[in-house]
Design a protein around this nucleic acid. Sequence first.
DNA 1: CCTATGTTTCGCCACTTAACGAAATATAAG
DNA 2: CTTATATTTCGTTAAGTGGCGAAACATAGG
Lengths: 122, 122
Amino acid sequence: MRDFLEITKALSDVNRVRILMALNKRELCVCQITELLELAPSTVSKHMSILDHARLVESRKDGRWVYYRLVSEEVKPLVAGVIEWMIENLGDDKILLQDDHRLKDILDKGCLENRNSMKKMI
Amino acid sequence: MRDFLEITKALSDVNRVRILMALNKRELCVCQITELLELAPSTVSKHMSILDHARLVESRKDGRWVYYRLVSEEVKPLVAGVIEWMIENLGDDKILLQDDHRLKDILDKGCLENRNSMKKMI
DNA sequence: CCTATGTTTCGCCACTTAACGAAATATAAG
DNA sequence: CTTATATTTCGTTAAGTGGCGAAACATAGG
């Protein structure tokens, strides 16, 4: 029950749902999510902590950046089931389509990591 | 998104989850749910209103009593999917097993409707 | 009509939560 | 070492939420 409620509470905030859907099929660092949602970094960090504690996302640290991704498929059915449900029923949401569009710009513009690599090359 | 969040918010309270699981396979009136959860009738009524607004339950009025049940199967997949997920992953929860046991007593003791019927028969 | 019972609505209170900024921490680069 | 950037932690504040009791509403029965 505790795990169940942690998941449903994690899913009961619009910004956390937007984050999870943005993480579908790609990983993102905190600053990219911050730019997408236009929230304070501390706020996004708190959201990521809640999602992480609910076992809905995993993270890896790469230099200064922390990249988050959806949990892997072969996770326990409690988590896998609800992520599948979310993705299947939320695909055509207006806000999420806007996010997907904005994410393209954020990714095309190049992440800071890429810009730093460019600087190295110059 | 609005429907989605109404559902996840409805599912993010332990007493509402207990209500939904109690309604699995049987309908219950508000006073029976009140007895099960040991909450004030006004509190239970509020919970039922939230579950109803999220389209997770349906109700019928019979005399003084309002009976609630889980929504029918052939409801839209957004709702059907999450109810299935909840039932499949919450079956062996400790609190819910206790509730199931207590519900037997509540139902065996006879609902007020039955007692009224008995009075008619005497 | 009057009473009893089930349910809902309303107002209030305690607690939680999402937001922010400031400060602390971590790491890469000069 | 110092600076700059990314992230997290902490404290505060405004808004939301779950709980209750009182009162209103609905209905069955005397």
